[in-house]
């Protein structure tokens, strides 16, 4: 494809990769690195997806266009993980949060930088962090 400056690098999303990386996640991670949370929208029925999908699950249209999501979020639910999965043992304790974003969208991510117990309803912002050369995560911080 012309016009897009794709460094051939593949990016991985999240702290751990469990499935074979796909172009969708690599692209999502690359956008995150540029500070953008990019979802996509169906050109036929208007359904919005965050994280993005390969096709529209409502009408099976393959033609989805990217849109930038406002990173502001409200805390819907949270937990502090003390007993972690094997791959996360050295990270515990960490806070996992569900954030509500615009247009009914939302994601699950770590919440970092809080010094006391978070409060459901608090305002947050979704930010990106590069973990190493090819791995990116998003996390919530207090707004």
């Amino acid at each position: 494809m012309e016009g897009i400056n794709v460094s051939e690098q593949e990016y991985k999303f999240g702290y751990v990769t469990y499935e074979e990386p796909v172009p969708l996640t690599s692209e999502f991670a690359k956008n995150l690195l540029e500070g953008k949370v990019i979802g996509n929208q169906c050109t036929k029925c208007g359904a919005k997806y965050l994280p993005p999908r390969n096709g529209c699950s409502k009408c099976f249209n393959r033609d989805l266009v990217p849109f930038e999501v406002n990173p502001e979020a409200t805390l819907r639910a949270f937990t502090v993980i003390h007993f972690a999965p094997e791959s996360f043992t050295d990270k515990a304790p960490y806070i996992v949060a569900v954030g509500q974003m615009e247009n009914g969208l939302g994601v699950l991510a770590h919440l970092v930088g809080v010094t006391s117990m978070p409060k459901v309803g608090m305002q947050m912002k979704l930010v990106a962090q590069k973990l190493d050369q090819d791995r990116v995560v998003y996390k919530f911080v207090k707004a």
Partner: peptide, 25 residues
């Protein structure tokens, strides 16, 4: 979801703890 949620180390107790925090609130 191993693509979008498991990569954040949410456990099964964790998913239900999320429900608990919302239910308590």
């Amino acid at each position: 979801d191993v693509r979008w949620e498991s990569p954040y180390g949410c456990t099964f107790p964790g998913y239900y703890a999320l429900f608990a925090s919302a239910h308590m609130e």
